[in-house]
Design a binder for these strands. Structure first.
Length: 363
DNA sequence: TAACCGTGGCC
DNA sequence: TGGCCAAGGTT
């Protein structure tokens, strides 16, 4: 174990300055108004790799519809995905329900209060375990997220990629050495709050920072050089052709199943990836035995992590009726709106509801 | 271990 | 406007 970069006096002052600053400056966030472990757990799942501003509207809606472990465990997956629609990383939503079921079946309806047990829940890693234990149960458990990494990298001038290997372990050890037994949840949140509001990646507000006098990087004027992040992966272009098939005022949609690579359980216009858009379109014509127009009805560009998706929607005429199944469905415009869609295909849906359906109804 | 999973906001 | 990134987890 590496020696901590701080002595005891510094540690106490850092704790005090940070907590005092937090008390004066913390944002009024909905999950800071509750002590309910379930609500806090839901907030932490939503906040994984997702900014506070994005989560806020989802959080209240979700808890109104699914206020406790029981209702979440019993809910239809489709309902949960609809509440999650647009938030991304949809595996989180499915894991959340799996966690609710496990809590009811294996933990007597209550969140476990040890790191070892809470880590057994799907979708809970070291960060979320620390967050829930400290915030909901006042356990002196540390947490490390992107904010903490950025703050520590500057406070102690930690170099290299802090997200992997030995460096990452070191950050955790510092976090553990710093956590106070009094108000651990507030301390953890204060650390993240600092990273989210002052210790910013691009333009850190060092003059307002309660830790300025302790910050090694600020003293040396190298705060914008830290943290040292690895280069992002190169983007990959992905053409995807989607079909708009209509019959008797109903539209054909497909549910993505379990062997899909991503967006599992979400609905979409039937679609196929190809090396080129032409190839994708022809795949679809063959699979559904339809004739598609050569020109797309609507074209969307969408970024998913490092994939640049070119999504084209082609109007198709069916030669014979396509049979519905569990994964293939004919829906009315109203039903179409109620299905959980991904963001990219959701844009297509919006366009269809606005332009295709209206035009169709008026003739 | 490193690549993969989504999205909207930001400059 | 294109590239980068955020209260991470999983495999």
């Amino acid at each position: 174990m590496k020696k901590s970069p701080i002595n005891n006096i510094h540690m106490l002052q850092i704790q005090k300055n940070l907590l005092d600053w937090y008390d004066q400056n913390k944002r009024d966030l909905p999950w800071r108004r509750t002590q309910d472990p379930y609500s806090i757990f839901v907030s932490e799942m939503m906040l994984q790799q997702t900014q506070v501003k994005t989560v806020i509207p989802y959080y209240g809606r979700f808890l109104t519809e699914l206020p406790d472990w029981q209702s979440l465990a019993k809910a239809k997956e489709e309902k949960i995905l609809k509440l999650w629609e647009g938030l991304g990383y949809y595996r989180r939503a499915r894991n959340l329900q799996a966690a609710a079921k496990m809590i009811i079946e294996e933990f007597n309806g209550h969140l476990p209060q040890t790191r070892e047990e809470i880590l057994k829940l799907p979708g809970v890693g070291q960060y979320s375990a620390g967050a829930v234990l400290s915030i909901a149960f006042q356990k002196a458990e540390p947490l490390v997220d992107g904010n903490v990494i950025r703050v520590f990298s500057r406070l102690f001038v930690l170099r290299g990629n802090l997200k992997t290997g030995e460096n990452h372990q070191n950050v955790w050890e510092i976090a553990r050495s710093l956590i106070p037994s009094k108000r651990p949840g507030d301390f953890n949140q204060a650390l993240m709050e600092l990273g989210a509001t002052l210790c910013l990646s691009d333009n850190p507000q060092c003059l307002l920072c309660p830790l300025f006098q302790f910050c090694e990087a600020a003293q040396r004027g190298i705060q914008t050089d830290l943290p040292e992040m690895p280069k992002a992966a190169k983007n990959i272009e992905v053409p995807i052709a989607a079909l708009l098939v209509e019959n008797k005022k109903k539209i054909l949609v497909k549910k993505r199943d379990e062997n899909e690579k991503w967006l599992k359980g979400l609905w979409e216009f039937p679609s196929a990836e190809g090396k080129t858009m032409d190839e994708g379109r022809q795949k679809m014509e063959k699979e559904y035995n339809v004739m598609a127009e050569k020109k797309p009805f609507k074209s969307i560009r969408h970024q998913i992590t490092n994939h640049k998706i070119h999504l084209d929607l082609f109007i198709a005429r069916n030669k014979k009726t396509i049979k519905a199944s569990t994964h293939l469905k004919w829906v009315t415009p109203a039903e179409l709106e109620d299905l959980p869609f991904s963001s990219a295909q959701g844009k297509l849906r919006q366009w269809v509801l606005k332009n295709f359906v209206q035009k169709n109804n008026s003739k």
